[in-house]
Design a binder for these strands. Structure first.
Length: 283
DNA sequence: GCCCAGGAGTGTG
DNA sequence: CACACTCATGGG
């Protein structure tokens, strides 16, 4: 079933490829494929339109894609707000098509617990291993991300063997602790409460809680600070310090759209490290 | 082989 | 509060 949605501004390669999400792959033709719910989906950008394809009978797939890509975000307004920061104002326009994604809460929580102290290729491999081994098989040999019930069937030993390392125990504990009711109630919680409750979960510290708040629960004021963001803040703002201090700095400086500022800085810093085109520079 | 990775947990000063 | 150490492993 073919569908078409409009999202503007939009850069599909940046949005799906910058390391926010771990289950979307791009082939050499620029076709992205991934899974939303129990649907295997292919996406291709055609200017302001996203042309997609899903298995026959897939319902509301277009809506799922609009949600994933946060089509309702007013990027113009967000960038006008962030432009008050002179560093971001410098090159933010070039990243207009980079959007924060909205992931499934459970998948996001598990994914970012796996993401601790691992690089992105490895995270993709771990998440994929969970899907292949415990997720429901769907179209074209693809697998849905396993829900709590399915993932509970795993053992710590199996998970370790799949390459999760010390993260295996956290995943087992999360299966016991986090049910749909928990996620539902967290969805309705104010950001600070959500963050506090996430941090109480095993394997979830401040950084993971901020990622899950941002990408899983859609809280745009969240500002996850990983090694790249630490470097960006030190290089571009001469700002160093504890997580708490950096977080307070970001909240003051970037306000309600700190999440977008974070994603711009994160992407920019990685490009800078690769000595590729980067928009923000200290000079 | 070496260094690094979208860190967290625990213990100590 | 700030450090220091451990955890387990694949990717570049």
């Amino acid at each position: 079933m073919r569908f078409e949605v409009e999202v503007a501004p939009m850069d599909l390669d940046l949005t799906l490829g910058c390391g926010q999400t771990f289950r979307w792959r791009r082939n050499t033709n620029g076709l992205w494929s991934g899974v939303l719910g129990d649907q295997f989906i292919s996406l291709k950008q055609n200017g302001p339109r996203i042309v997609g394809e899903a298995a026959p009978g897939g319902r509301c797939v277009g809506e799922s894609v609009l949600e994933l890509l946060r089509a309702q975000d007013d990027i113009g307004r967000i960038q006008r707000t962030l432009r008050r920061d002179p560093v971001l104002a410098l090159g933010m326009k070039r990243m207009k098509g980079l959007r924060i994604v909205k992931l499934d809460e459970w998948e996001c929580l598990i994914s970012y617990v796996l993401a601790t102290y691992a690089n992105i290729p490895r995270i993709m491999k771990m998440v994929d291993a969970l899907a292949v081994n415990y997720g429901q098989r769907i179209a074209r040999g693809a697998h849905a991300f396993p829900d709590r019930r399915r993932l509970s069937k795993s053992t710590t030993k199996e998970l370790t063997k799949l390459g999760l390392g010390y993260r295996a125990g956290y995943i087992k504990e999360l299966c016991e602790l986090v049910d749909d009711q928990t996620l539902h109630s967290l969805s309705a919680a104010p950001y600070e409460n959500l963050r506090r409750e996430l941090i109480e979960l095993p394997g979830v510290g401040e950084k993971v809680a901020d990622c899950v708040s941002l990408f899983g629960f859609g809280r745009l004021e969240s500002f996850p600070i990983d090694l790249w963001i630490e470097r960006a803040l030190a290089r571009l703002y001469k700002k160093k310090g504890s997580y708490r201090a950096l977080r307070a700095f970001a909240a003051r400086r970037f306000g309600e759209y700190a999440g977008y500022a974070q994603e711009y800085l994160y992407h920019n810093e990685r490009m800078h490290a690769r000595e590729q085109e980067c928009a923000f520079s200290e000079e």
